[in-house]
Every structure is written in C-alpha cells, then in structure tokens.
Design a protein around this nucleic acid. Structure first.
Lengths: 235, 235
DNA sequence: GCCGCTTCGATTGCATACAACCGACTCGAT
DNA sequence: ATCGAGTCGGTTGTATGCAATCGAAGCGGC
C-alpha cells in the first residue's frame, strides 16, 4: 500500500488554525467587506465551533492586519483606502525587486522549470478566460519567484502583504485589455527569470506591479471619493 | 484643566493585549531563549490571569513570528539562526532604503527636529555609556525615520521586523569600537536627513545596517557552529 | 421639544470545566 | 536485555458560564 494514498491529514488541524484560514479567505475574497463587524455569536454558529478558537483566530487575523480590534466592541474588517493601497504597493515594489535579484542568482533550474509549468497552466486559463484560476496561478507564480529567492523572511513578509493586497485586487475589475497586457508581462517575466537577467527581471516586475496599481487606483477612484454610504456591516 | 493631564489610560487595555506586550518583551530581551517552551500553566500563574487571554496573546505572537505553534504541544520561542538573521537584514536593507528615500521627501521640519532631539539625547547616553538607554533611543530614531516616510504599511512591517531583529541585537555584544563607530554613523545619518540628501541617507543607512550585521554575525559565529547543547527550555 | 439619566438587551472579556492528546514510565513477553 | 503494549500525569484544545461593558431605547425633568 502506497503511503501517499493516505491523503487526508491524519491529524486534524487545530480549530483556531482552520477557522483563521476560512475567515481569512472570507475577508480576502471580499465576502466580508471592509468595515464589517465580526460578530462572535454569528460566526460560531456559522462554523459550528465555540468562541474560544474563534477568538484566537480573530487575534491572529488582527496581527496580520486584516481586522482591527476595538476593545469591548469586537473586531472589524480593516478598510482599504487609496492611501493604504498605494503604500502597500510601494513596499511590494522593493520586496519584489529584492526577490527578483535574489531569484536570478539562486533559483535552481528545477525552480525555474516548475514556475514555467505554472506559467503554462496559467496561460491556458487565460486563453479560456477562466479568471479565478488565472488569478490563483498568477498569485502562485509571484509567490514562487519570491520563494526561490531563498530568503524565508522575505517570503513570509511578502506572503502577508500579498494577502492584504489581494483583497483590493479581488474588488478591482480586470478589463480585457489589462488582462492581455498582464499576460504579456508575465511572459517577459518568465523569460527574464529563465535567462537569469536580474536587471531586466526587476524592471519587468516593477512595471507589472505599477500596472496592477493602476487598475486598483481606477477602482478606488470610482469607489472612494464618495464613501457617504457606510457599509451596513453584517457578519 | 488640560486634557493632556489625563495620562493614565481611562480604559484598561484588554488582558490579551497587555500580556502579548509583556511576553514579547520577555522574548525580545532574551529572557525566554530560543527554543523555550511556553507552558501555559506557568505563564498564567506568573501573570495572574487565566489561560484564555494568554492563549490569545500567544496566537498573536505566533503571527508575528516570535513563537512557533506546535499542535497539541504548545508554543516555543522561534530560533535565531545565522541564515534567518542574514535574511532579515537583507529585507531590512530594502525597507530602510525606501524609508530613507521617502523620509527625505516627506519629513516635515518638525519631524526632523524631533529626531534631532532624540539623537541629542542618545548622544548623551552614549557619552555616559548607558547602553540600554542608548539602544532604546537608537531603535526609536530608526523607527521615527521610517515613520516620517509617511507610509503606514512600511512603518508597520518595519516595526515587526525590528522586533524580531532586536532579539539578535540584545544577544550580540557591542564592542566599544563598534559603539563609537555606530554613533559616528548616526551623526552622519541625521545630517543627511536634515539636508534631505536621499542618496546619501540611503547609503549611510545601508552601511550602518551592514555594520550591525557584522556584529551579529560575529556573535552567531561564536555561538551557532556548536549548537550541540540544545537549550533545556524552561518557561 | 430637547437633553440627560436610567434601564435593558446584546455582546465582548475573562475564568473555569471538561475532553483529547502527548510523552514517559512500568511491566510483561520474547 | 530489549522491545512493545498499556497506563498515567501533565499539558494543550475546546466548550461553556459568568461578569463587565457598550449602545440604544425608554423616561422624566427642564
């Protein structure tokens, strides 16, 4: 009997960890909009757990910056402002730049091959206009590039920042033109990485990021200036 | 009656937040060495609280990367390896570089004046050889430079990374020569900021950081190669 | 009619109780 | 003597109960 056939984790993960993941997804995917209050009773019923692990999970999300803790009044999903998005992109920029540099120097051929495979899969989804799968692989590729920079701290910080940034990207609408453009950029990024051309990779990553930012800015431009209608905020 | 005279927080902070701070201090200052297991019973007795807020605090520290959660076996203080220190410094480098750039562009004259004051105080402590106070102000100055870059996300990420790095710096011994050198570097850093000379500031910050790294590397060099004696790890 | 105080329901913060799990030890069989 | 199953103390994971707090609605005084 192959050991690999035992796929389901024998040891069930702790509830607080599981719940944190699910809550994180709900927030990142925009199901819980910014400003939404996390009502503990509702959430315990939703997840079928008690308040203890839920509260532990909320504390973790607070440390990740996804929710804000208001003493005696629970937690609310943090807002995404134009300023905060700009700030995050700016940090993202230097992180990706460093990652690109290191990745060119340290990535193994196998690393690059795996990224190329992900890229190929992403291209298929792109051609089929499967936006969600495309997004997921897009994200995965970026993370993999950072991972193979061989700097675990960088990878970790990048991951956390990505999560928060992804919230904005889930909300912003991708135009067809932008999608085509992004795909083209990705082709070039992969090429530069394959050639281990650090300077070019850094430039490409910066451009790519800048274009992402533009998309989000457009979205924020249409949404933010008129926040008169505060979200009713139901959990 | 001046409102500012009400100094003590009217609303007592939640226990989990208070405990998180105290635990963080204990870890950063090296009282809990890497590998130390956090025994919940002992800690609840020590702090005089129940396990609920303690566990919430531990989850927060885990999200900050100060402790590692082992399912069903609690939390242990994360190790500091040569590699992880190097990695953190590398990230620190690009963050400070960005911060320096932005700070030169955005800092108000008042910001700079306040930093200059902190610097003057630090110099006094330096002259009196008051290492702890010097360290505290040193840290504060760096954080203030980053803060006045006007990028809240950057400031936050920088702060978290600083906390983890400070652990290493608490352990490494400062030689008198290095201290003199560091103080001189700080004089130059302040000067560059005052002149809003971004390029120079970035260079100086990079050099300063690099020298810090060297100190830690020396310490790690003496400690790490022979980790045969695993810490007994009492909480 | 408007403002402030009081009361009440709902919610969070904390403490405690119970269950599941881990690791070490004992003890017996080979 | 060594290995393995079984047991037990201690620890962590989860659920629940109680106290403190908040916000809003109700109420009386001006």
């Amino acid at each position: 009997m192959k050991l690999e056939s035992i796929v389901e984790p024998i040891c069930p993960r702790p509830l607080h960890s599981e719940v944190a993941d699910r809550l994180r997804d709900l927030i990142v995917q925009g199901e819980f909009e910014p400003g939404t209050r996390l009502n503990e009773r509702l959430l315990t019923e939703r997840f079928g757990i008690s308040r203890t692990p839920l509260r532990e999970a909320i504390k973790m999300l607070a440390s990740e910056g996804l929710v804000q803790l208001l003493p005696n009044r629970g937690a609310v999903v943090t807002a995404i402002t134009r300023k905060s998005a700009l700030d995050m992109f700016q940090v993202m920029g230097v992180l990706e730049s460093l990652a690109g540099e290191l990745a060119c120097a340290r990535a193994t051929d196998q690393d690059i091959e795996e990224i190329a495979n992900l890229h190929a899969t992403m291209r298929r989804h792109y051609k089929r206009r499967e936006l969600n799968e495309y997004f997921r692989l897009n994200q995965e590729i970026h993370q993999r590039i950072v991972d193979c920079a061989g700097n675990a701290e960088l990878a970790d910080i990048y991951r956390r920042l990505s999560v928060r940034l992804r919230r904005a990207r889930y909300m912003a609408n991708y135009s067809k033109e932008r999608w085509d453009e992004a795909m083209a950029e990705h082709e070039q990024i992969l090429e530069a990485l394959s050639q281990r051309n650090a300077r070019r990779l850094k430039t490409l990553l910066a451009t790519h990021l800048d274009n992402k930012l533009k998309v989000i800015e457009d979205w924020l431009g249409t949404v933010e200036p008129a926040p008169q209608k505060r979200a009713p905020a139901r959990a």
